[in-house]
């Protein structure tokens, strides 16, 4: 997964690394290619330790359930839907961090679409509620 990144992903990562809002960034294959320090605090995992993760890896590591504690299938998670549907998606859910603790979070994911309509990935901002 260390192939060269598009300028859209590079700039999105630069932005994420400079702000205090927790941010996750996935590429067009749903691989988690970056999360910033504020996100690390919520998911209890350092990006330097995990590096990039495939969709299967990160959705398994950070399980998600709805308010009724029903598991949310990977394809129904905001980031996946933002990519699949090419539109912003907002959702409240419970996210299991690396230490096993469940955190109630609000997530808004949006696709990164290039000049010719090419999909480069998606970004999600989220915070504990």
């Amino acid at each position: 997964m260390s192939t060269s990144k598009s300028i859209q992903l590079i700039l999105a990562r630069q932005l994420a690394s400079c702000i205090a809002t927790p941010i996750l960034l996935v590429d067009d294959q749903n691989a988690l290619v970056y999360y910033n320090e504020p996100a690390e605090a919520i998911i209890h995992q350092r990006f330097d330790e995990t590096g990039e993760m495939t969709a299967a890896e990160w959705t398994a590591r950070f399980a998600a359930v709805d308010d009724d504690r029903n598991p949310i299938p990977p394809d129904d998670r905001p980031m996946m839907r933002a990519l699949a549907e090419s539109c912003p998606v907002s959702q409240k859910l419970w996210l299991r961090s690396s230490n096993g603790e469940w955190r109630h979070v609000q997530i808004t994911a949006f696709p990164l679409i290039g000049e010719k309509g090419q999909l480069f990935g998606a970004m999600s901002i989220f915070w504990a509620i």
Binding site: S2, K5, I10, R13
Partner: peptide, 19 residues
Amino acid sequence: ALGALKFPSLPRAWTSGGS
């Protein structure tokens, strides 16, 4: 180097123009 506190701090794949 835009936005980087230290340049370079990321691998070539994550650097504009690197490839």
